[in-house]
Amino acid sequence: MSHQVWLHQLPHIVAANAPAANHSVDWFHQLPQNIVIGLEQGSLYALVALGYTLVYGVLQLINFAHSEVFMAGAFGSYLVVDAIVGNRHLTGAAVPLTVLAGIVSGAAVGAAVAWILEKVAYKALRRNGAPKLAFLISAIGASLFLSNLAGKLFTRVQNNAFPTYFNVNHHVFSIGSADVSLIVLIIIATAVIMMVFLDRLVNKTKLGMGIRAVAEDAPTAALMGIDIDRTISRTFIVGGALAGVAGFLFGTAFGVGNIMGFTPGVKAFAAAVLGGIGNVRGAMIGGLILGQAEVLISALPFVGAEWNDVVSFAVLVLILLVRPTGILGERLWRAA
């Protein structure tokens, strides 16, 4: 029951921001605030979507257990933050340092789980040239396993909210009529920094060049001296770290639970497809668009927040009808 509550946190937030009176003037009044909320949601989707798209790039595989990497990052950071805060009341520099510890531990646990996941669930299949369907089944199995393992380990923790070491709703500043709370600011700022960092990594570093080369043409990448196995492993680590950070941010805002990954995971996957699966900037854009679309459209007077999930997938379908390979998706070169 308790997980149901936070799974549907978002509609409630939107509902709170789009109160009773049902005419379009209100929608415009709420627009600035809803754009901020959409940005918050969208940047979380984008962080998770990057993991789907990176792994798809190198393996042409949808890693359906990625949502559980996100969940694992949330739990990992939850344990670390909980241990730091305990029963104490944090003040001054201890607060931002704890947030930083949450981000780092989320990234570390996400990366570690994703790394193990690849070794356990996929590597053997790859070595033996298993059909795509086997990967899919392995992914679903790993996802169920991780989610139930976390349930077994953690459901007895009744309070699934992060300890309150800072006031997440603390009003930081307003842009026009849009209020920006501390948690929203942290989420958006962290996501933007991570995305800029990833974009640099993919385009400017050797690791990134290797990931791109393997994604475009793995056998030829090997001829250039790129170790394909190692590159795939590192791709999981990078994607897992991003999802782990997203898990920490999401958990701080909405709480943690063993099936917390499902809805954000499916949405982030949709965002990756929307942007053009395999395309890194596409995943970022797809996440941001999906975040805006679901908040803005469900805030329409005749739609309503309970249509949230319907809206996201309707947007996905509509965009794919116009651009079947996604917004930044290109013709599949390797098919040529």
Partner: peptide, 24 residues
């Protein structure tokens, strides 16, 4: 020796069909 280590010996292979990285 796997292909990614053979190149370190100074053996460079231009494969059939060129195989440039099209999006780079």
């Amino acid at each position: 020796i796997p292909a990614h280590d053979v190149i370190r010996l100074g053996i460079c292979h231009v494969p059939e069909g060129r195989h440039v990285f099209p999006r780079m």
